[in-house]
């Protein structure tokens, strides 16, 4: 909810983040290669804003979210949260910093322990990270339940007694328990029905306004990201191909992949549907274990050039705050075009 992100402070700074997972094969489990789930990405998230991270399945967006919270030991790169480098901090030292950074997961069924009551689930971070008395804890849990719109009377119930939307509220309350500054929301509405999605998204927006939270909102739902995000990064095969403000990205996408992705989204309006000129991409996403040479998108790009098959495109800033990694926007190309 910022008008000018530039005046605001950078809360999360990610530089050249790489997350490669080894592939082992054979009886001796020899390392035969690696899945380059995230392959050198950089971005900033300003305090109080929502950065949307979009892409299709397997593009590495969830891995980015988990890697910057150090749920993985990252392969390379740097992650600074609130000015503190956490990219290679040992897990034991990270514990003290966990309260500032939290996560809301996609599947509220799988991320809540079925044997714990709601109050125990929401209170667990308080047990781990604070020295609150039982009474203080109880009061805090009740307060959190109020904030996320859960009925206090249900504090002793178990996750299976709640609907999907309510379960996601439990997950949000747990993430809020330690007053974090930064929350990674990993597909928080993907498992919910459309009529419930809006309830949860509005709740996330209200909580952000109230507590000045900063979100990384990971989603494959381009229309919901347009609604909630201030700036948007588009990922393809482990890399960010375009990053821009919401308006720039949705009104004037520059990268051929972003253009194709946006054009593929169906519109709930038959008249508009008739008029959309779709860029139908051919084929499938290549394997991240064996990405193509040059630009990752060169195998499917409708505007592919010779250089794309040999050289990885650098990132060009084509307008203030609007960057894209595509050879179409290199200086030589822009000159020859004009």
């Amino acid at each position: 909810m910022l008008d000018d992100p530039k005046v605001s402070k950078i809360l999360v700074e990610v530089r050249d983040l790489k997350m490669h997972f080894p592939i082992h094969a054979g009886v001796l489990k020899k390392r035969v290669g690696e899945v380059k789930a995230v392959d050198g990405i950089s971005f900033d998230i300003y305090e109080g804003e929502t950065l949307g991270l979009v892409g299709e399945s397997g593009c590495g967006k969830s891995t980015v979210g988990r890697a910057i919270l150090r749920l993985y030991d990252i392969t390379e790169g740097s992650v600074k949260i609130d000015g503190i480098e956490i990219g290679h901090t040992p897990q034991s030292e990270l514990r003290t910093m966990r309260p500032t950074m939290q996560m809301v997961f996609q599947d509220p069924q799988a991320s809540l322990n079925p044997r714990m009551s709601v109050s125990a689930i929401i209170g667990e971070p308080l047990d781990e990270h604070t020295k609150m008395s039982k009474i203080e804890k109880r009061a805090k849990v009740m307060d959190l339940m109020d904030q996320v719109g859960l009925n206090r009377d249900f504090a002793n119930r178990y996750p299976h007694e709640f609907s999907g939307g309510q379960r996601q509220r439990i997950g949000i309350a747990r993430a809020l328990a330690l007053n974090p500054k930064f929350i990674v929301c990993d597909e928080p509405i993907a498992a919910l029905d459309v009529s419930i999605q809006a309830q949860v998204v509005n709740l996330l927006e209200d909580l952000q306004a109230e507590h000045g939270l900063t979100y990384l909102f990971i989603s494959h739902d381009l229309s919901m990201v347009r609604h909630i995000a201030d700036r948007v990064a588009v990922m393809y095969l482990g890399r960010v191909v375009e990053l821009a403000s919401r308006e720039q990205l949705y009104e004037a996408p520059k990268h051929p992949y972003t253009q194709a992705l946006l054009s593929a989204v169906p519109e709930p309006d038959p008249w508009i549907e008739d008029k959309i000129e779709r860029v139908i991409l051919q084929g499938d996403v290549p394997s991240p274990a064996n990405p193509p040479k040059g630009c990752n998108f060169c195998t499917r790009c409708p505007q592919v050039m010779e250089i794309c098959k040999t050289d990885e495109p650098p990132t060009f800033e084509i307008a203030p705050g609007h960057v894209t990694a595509c050879h179409l926007y290199s200086a030589t190309n822009t000159e020859s075009a004009s």
Binding site: S163, I196, Q197, S223, H227
Partner: peptide, 21 residues
Amino acid sequence: QTVPRVRGERAERLEVIEGQP
């Protein structure tokens, strides 16, 4: 009304269907 859109006007606030099925 509740579904956000990729094209056209962007609503500041999503319309909500209260309650559960």
